[in-house]
Amino acid sequence: MIKEIYAYREMIFSMVQKDLRGRYKGSFLGFLWTFINPLLQLLVYNLVFSIILRSGVDKYYLFLFVALIPWIFFSSAITGGSVSVIAQKDLVKKIYFPNEVIPISYVTSCFVNMLLGFVVVIGVVIYSGVHISPLALLCLPVVMIVEYFLALGIAMITSAVTVYFRDLEHILTIIAMAWMYITPVVYDIEICPTEYRWIMHINPMTSVIIAFRDILYYGRVPEMMTLLEAVVLGVVFLLIGCLVFRKLKRRFAEEL
């Protein structure tokens, strides 16, 4: 399967390109939205959590931002990804190609968007004056790839299931919102009561977000346990995603 998808790399590339180009097509600020959107979100959360609900975290804007950008990637990948196959139903019904290409392209284009967002993140990190050890910085791509696997695995499941069950699209927007609050994005995991901490740990995004924050906020190499947990979960979800997708794609052409 991997071999076949590799053969279709040009298709993935074209679809990502088309998606990125089409995303802000016709809007006045165009591509700038890639940067403006996360900055505005940052502004809102920052207002809420450092002025109204004071969190007491030092440099809260940075604390939040290094987690928010990866979170936005994850959440848009799984919610938007859920309708990606349906959106391409003309292709799926008429032409053969490994259908995995669709969620892969979608998640990849979200991922590229996150990388662009990281240009802003790095800017904010430099502005804040946090010192990051070079070794920690080396861990950053690893964490990103792990998150990519995780998002892809889940997007594969949601995109395939949505073909048979359209409500999932709407259910997912609620799930994504709730999921954000059981992931330490806007707060530190330490403030979560210990007896509920297990919920955090079965959540695969927790270790990813903690790792991002370790690197970019605390400037330190993430703990081995956190990294390991993230890698294992990422791989497991990707495998489950592939299996589910392979099982469900057989009837796509008939169901769409």
């Binding site: 076949e4 053969a7 279709y8 040009e10 298709m11 590339f13 074209s14 088309k18 003309d90 292709l91 008429k94 032409i95 190609f97």
Partner: peptide, 22 residues
């Protein structure tokens, strides 16, 4: 089936051939 009306003929050749796995 994979043609995109707003893209040029040439761009569509690229995209369509990509769908065939080239």
């Amino acid at each position: 089936a994979g043609f995109h009306p707003d893209m040029s003929g040439r761009e569509n050749i690229y995209f369509n051939a990509a769908i065939f796995g080239l």
